[in-house]
Design a binder for these strands. Structure first.
Lengths: 230, 230
DNA sequence: GGCAATTATTCTGTATACAGCATTCAGAAT
DNA sequence: ATTCTGAATGCTGTATACAGAATAATTGCC
């Protein structure tokens, strides 16, 4: 296996767009997806040679990606024993959701004050697209847009540090949230809450937006807490 | 980071202190110190071969450390051009301090409710040690203990995610705060504020502790903002 | 003499090779 | 039969080597 540019190695799985000239970043995203989707189950050790040959890359960039995943908190790096996929206890998930809630509440207030109308309309557009996914039953698309909308609202607060820490926790929670499947009626409820969020944002009603988001995230905990058995 | 570290089952019988020498972690800490102390000035490119030979290590663990530093936000990793030490604009610093303030305010309230008396007394001990540094004019020791105390108070809130994000931002701010030199009278003021903090914590006065910390961090911004020229 | 193009050098990105530690399995002793 | 010890195997940690890209330098041309 030589260079990914000259020889395009056949990808066994679809939807790998980014073939950027930074292999470790590609590996990083790939591994993150594998963890989120459960291909690498929590608690399992990651064999570098094995994964490396599976992805068709050498160990060096793979190790760099693993080091970064450790920084993101998705794996633990145990000396002389390698990387193990992090296993979140129920309390940790709740703590993360508490912090995310606090961050989003604060971001919501700032966003109502600072956001440009253009920025708000872009969030609205994402919301409409998400509605399309909802109507067509596209769960994965809905899930991704859901996260993007929350990130976008945080971004409207125009505080890079806030976005960073929010993104960090959001990433750690992705796997959990991905597991937390909801019934159709709860799904409709969540969509309604989102509609309410967008409306509050468009009215720049800081108190209402903050409250709705807070409620939304508390319910998120209710949804996922039963799927945590450790 | 400082998670309540997952259990290594029956491994730790006695308090055997085995130095785990993982080179990339040592390099990571070393580089972080070099950035904080200004040995690697902001905006400068990090030459891997140069630094590597300077530290007497190969490029591989050095690169892993750099990747981790990028995760911490202390350097930017530009494709095909390597690592450059991150240069913080004034607004970014202010944004970070705003988030830290929010985090510490929340942590303070939780800490007053959840902290054990033993935990509080340990913070008091750190504070007393810091006072010793203050009286003997040990600026570096004071500085380190100052950060440790803030981290300890956050830790009392017993929320790993909260500690993690706080630690992340604290690390990014270290260099800035290290630069922000204060005159003797301001130093005395800061010490007095800390004394007030500890007192509020010991009384478990959530409102007061939160308020004092908030004021403390707003003043921190006042102290450092003039030393930022970009 | 200045500008542009081409070469030369340096540095990053990736692969491979080697050494050391951990885990496991087998064999011997109690 | 059980337990302890030791070798064998596999994996991690680090170093080195090589290829490609970016920047610097030099030379040719106008």
């Amino acid at each position: 296996m030589h260079h990914p540019m000259s020889e395009t190695p056949e990808r066994d799985t679809a939807a790998i767009k980014i073939e950027r000239h930074s292999l470790h970043d590609a590996i990083l995203n790939r591994l993150r997806d594998m963890i989120i989707e459960g291909d690498l189950p929590p608690g399992s050790r990651v064999n570098e040679g094995q994964i490396g040959s599976m992805l068709g890359v050498s160990r060096t960039p793979l190790r760099e990606a693993l080091k970064n995943l450790a920084g993101e908190g998705l794996v633990d790096l145990i000396p002389s024993r390698g990387a193990v996929v992090k296993k979140f206890a129920a309390k940790e998930v709740r703590d993360m959701l508490d912090v995310v809630r606090m961050l989003e509440e604060t971001a919501a207030r700032s966003a109502c004050e600072l956001a440009t109308t253009h920025g708000i309309s872009k969030v609205r557009a994402m919301h409409d697209e998400m509605l399309g996914c909802y109507r067509s039953g596209d769960r994965l698309g809905y899930y991704k847009l859901n996260q993007d909308i929350h990130s976008a609202i945080v971004a409207l607060a125009d505080n890079a540090a806030l976005s960073d820490v929010h993104s960090l926790l959001q990433t750690r929670l992705k796997r959990i949230r991905f597991i937390g499947h909801e019934g159709p009626e709860k799904w409709a409820k969540a969509v309604a809450e989102h509609e309410e969020m967008i409306a509050a944002l468009e009215n720049r009603d800081a108190d209402r937006l903050s409250a709705v988001i807070s409620k939304h995230l508390r319910k998120a905990w209710e949804r996922v807490k039963d799927s945590l058995n450790d």
